[in-house]
Amino acid sequence: MNQLHAVLIDGLIYSSWLFIIAVGLTLIYGVMKILNIAHGSLYALGAYSAASLAGYWINQGHAPMGSYAMMLVAAILVGLIAGPVIERGLLRFMYGKDEIVLVLVTYAVFLILEDFIKLTWGVDPYFLYQPYSLLGSFDVGNLTYPVYNLVLFGMAVLIGVTLVWVLTKTRRGKMLVAVIHDREMAAAMGINVSLVYFVTFTAGAMLGAVGGALTAPMISVQPGIGAETIVLAFAVVVIGGLGSLPGAALAAVLVGLVRSAAVHYRPELDLFAIYFVMAVVLIMRPKGLFSVQEARKI
């Protein structure tokens, strides 16, 4: 097998994962202008909940294929509970404040949730490895890949396409875009901005939890996984342009391919790969690949 093929396949699989973990973060920033540091904890909560629920399902002797449904149910539950609690319970009192204040608030939520995770699940790892190999594997040349990697790729495409369709083709999506462009004008036109924020944050939280749930079968789920992930997700979102869905997608592909190439050709540069892409992009386009021109209010 040509090494270039391996670089492309590995790069695309890694890109899919990067997009899945970053898309919730970019959605929330795009609509609410909140850089949600707690996204890392929502990812971790999704991973823990999926490992617990799907693990329980398998341990009870139910059909292992049902574990995929359990993973998604766990992620949706996390989004439906944690999203509204954080948005209604805390963030809505902070709207209108400086972005830095909101970053600090979500950082505080991140710290609280990290301790909540330790109190709830302890510090020992949880394993949910069965779904990773359950679907079998396929060969490309002399390399074997689990079919689960195709599921990741498919989920990334599905999430991206669904979000673009909702934002551009549906009435509610267009209302959301209106809020993105000008919150005050949208409110003046009768859009319930508060409801849009509530729905957006809940959807973003759910996407974060889905990222964690889909990652759970590939890792040992343990304290600290949220912190590692938020750094990567943040890098992808910044490279793509804060709040841009196409930007996040392109950034994920760029980072994935560059990291994969580094691992295959110059492993010693792996550590630097993502920051290399970030540095190059920000030198060329300081606001990211898909930054939107902002109108200055006079």
Binding site: M1, Q3, A6, V7, I9, D10, G11, I13, Y14, W17, N142, L143, T144, N149, T215, M218, I219, G224, I225, E228, T229, R259, S260, V263, H264, P267, E268, D270, L271
Partner: peptide
């Protein structure tokens, strides 16, 4: 044949495993 040096806490090892397999 190869020396892979992922960062601490990398979590995802797809490219490294491919490189080692090859």
């Amino acid at each position: 044949t190869s020396s892979q040096m992922p960062k601490f806490g990398a979590g995802q090892y797809g490219p490294e495993i491919s490189a080692l397999l090859q």
